[in-house]
Design a protein around this nucleic acid. Structure first.
Lengths: 145, 145
DNA sequence: CAAATAAAAGACAAAAGACTCTTTTATTTT
DNA sequence: AAAATAAAAGAGTCTTTTGTCTTTTATTTG
């Protein structure tokens, strides 16, 4: 596995896809999203339901329904997606999995890893969900395997 | 889960423990290691067998047997442990889980993540297994939950 | 050589994560 | 109101990770 869980990878790709498709209005359906990011449809549906409940995307049922995002969501940081799916372990967890690792009671690599955790945090907090729309729509960035 | 798999976390803690205990000679048994790092004994045994086969630690059977490390191992980088257990995904994997993500065909966060992957790599490659022996033996660093 | 010791190996078992399929509910359009 | 559409929800499966238990093999010591 990578830095994030598979579920979280799907979530980020899906949110980027939805953002790029619906920033100018409109909705996009689960089938189109699943195809667009190479993910299993029903599994992704669950992930998106969860993200929708948590306000990271929006959804509407019925004809012309689908998933979409508004301006406020476009300006939300990537950390919103990651925290909704994987929690905040990546920001605070110990590199060696020690529950009580801290500044006062550090594991051997505690200080070295603090820098990495911080950098991940800065990246996820300062990058906006809508930031890639142009690159995605121009085909400069890609979401498929 | 954190950056590394649970297996990898146990592996690193165990190798640090063995290094600190045996750098000046001697062996340490699986029971003492498991107790010393708060890990399930039999599960850890498998991990250590694997590390031993891959040359990341050494082992001897029979009375006065156990696990130990020599001078060469003390100077090996942490990346040897991580690669033996988790492979090199952490160094090369895409942040969004895309198989064909690359400089020419980047995912949206490819460039941002390159810096993080590089920092993790530098940390793991430049830190030596034996580097924490003193802190561990003095109780300044800790390996227990 | 016999007994004791300790790692190696193998076969299971439980839990979590990833994924599928079916039914239900809400909305829109005619 | 009826039909069509599309997300929401629920139940269940498969796979991987994590963990347990038992047996075997190698080594040392008396």
């Amino acid at each position: 596995m990578g830095i994030f869980s598979k579920t979280c990878e799907y979530a980020m790709r899906a949110v980027f896809f939805i953002a790029a498709k619906t920033a100018d209005g409109g909705r996009v359906g689960i089938k189109e999203i699943a195809t667009g990011i190479d993910s299993p449809e029903h599994f992704l549906a669950k992930i998106l339901q969860d993200l929708s409940r948590r306000g990271v995307i929006q959804s509407a049922k019925g004809p012309n329904g689908g998933f979409y995002v508004d301006e406020a969501i476009l300006n939300m940081p990537l950390s919103s997606i990651v925290e909704a799916v994987d929690g905040n372990d990546i920001f605070i967890g110990c590199g060696l999995g020690l529950e009580y690792c801290s500044e006062e009671n550090p594991c051997p690599i505690h200080h070295e890893f603090k820098a990495i955790r911080n950098q991940i945090q800065v990246l996820l907090k300062t990058t906006k969900i809508g930031e890639f729309n142009e690159d995605l729509n121009l085909g400069i960035a890609v979401l498929k395997k």
